[in-house]
């Protein structure tokens, strides 16, 4: 395999380690994923089209994409505030709060799902007061947004933190000494510097929300056409042994994920270039 090398090296083991990496990647990831492609190719175009455009399926895309977008927007707004506060301000309990941000990565999604449902159910801690205000959360599309916000919470905070840390205070001082107000400095100096990382965080949160299942199924109530997300429709079809239908929707969702992955890669390289310039 040494012909693959662009540069000669004295280090041994390239052939073996490259071969093993490729073999294991194919075995666990690429081969199983290709089953999806194979299944799609063997089922004909018309059933595929009918499966992905059924009204119930279209409604699930709308909910999945809409709720993921809303959750990413919420995380974008509050994530910026949280990251800013954690990096720039000092207050008691800052470290504890900072480490808690990673909770959605560490807590199994099923636990998050039942906990959020218990809180936002009509008789829950927050569900009851919100209910008297006429706001229903659990078993409504809003509940899906709440669960997806929880799941995506760390992404924006964690991508912004290092960038805020690396901001040069002298730039802000220069802006202030030239007579800019704090708000002008923020809007015209700080925000543009944060933009690539911020968009990366948003896209990561959106991508994660799009595929999420565990935390949503409990709080959404899973009513067809109303609170059913696309991954749940896949699950339901599979339980009815409708492999072809499940595959078709999976292919649509997977394509969306790949487009997002590509966008995230572009954003990250933009972010890295911006970082190198600063």
């Amino acid at each position: 395999m040494r012909w693959l090398l662009k540069r000669q090296t004295v280090l041994p083991g390239f052939g073996l380690s490259f071969g093993f990496t490729l073999f294991y990647l194919c075995l666990i990831v690429l081969l199983p994923l290709s089953a999806l492609l194979l299944k799609t190719l063997t089922q004909g175009w018309l059933p595929f089209w009918n499966a992905i455009t059924a009204p119930r399926v279209l409604a699930s895309y709308r909910l999945s994409f809409g709720a993921s977008l809303a959750a990413a927007a919420l995380n974008g707004l509050f994530g910026l505030v949280v990251a800013w506060v954690l990096v720039r301000y000092r207050f008691p309990g800052r470290r504890l709060v900072g480490s808690l941000v990673d909770l959605p990565f560490a807590l199994p999604t099923a636990v998050a799902g039942i906990a959020l449902t218990a809180i936002y159910a009509p008789n829950g801690w927050l569900g009851r007061p919100l209910g008297t205000l006429g706001i229903k959360v659990a078993f409504e599309p809003l509940g899906v947004v709440v669960a997806l916000t929880f799941i995506g919470l760390p992404f924006v905070v964690r991508t912004l933190e290092p960038v805020i840390e690396a901001l040069d205070p002298e730039v802000e001082e220069a802006s202030a000494s030239l007579g800019a107000s704090r708000w002008q400095t923020f809007a015209r100096v700080i925000l543009p510097a944060l933009l690539p990382a911020w968009l990366t965080g948003l896209a990561l949160a959106f991508a994660r929300a799009l595929g999420e299942y565990g935390s949503v199924v409990f709080i959404s109530g899973n009513m067809p056409l109303k609170t059913e997300i696309a991954p749940l429709v896949i699950m339901t079809k599979l339980e009815q042994y409708d492999y072809a239908g499940a595959t078709a929707i999976a292919v649509v969702m997977l394509s969306a994920s790949f487009v997002l992955l590509w966008i995230i890669n572009v954003l990250q390289s933009w972010s890295a270039r911006r970082g190198a310039r600063i």
């Binding site: 990831v29 199983p32 999806l36 991954p231 749940l232 896949i234 599979l238 999976a250 992955l261």
Partner: peptide, 24 residues
Amino acid sequence: LLATLIDLPFAVSPVIAGVVFVLL
């Protein structure tokens, strides 16, 4: 390309990860 493919499972919905094994 290899590095991107290694990250691929992060982009795949957990439900779809299950589906592919059922298909196989």
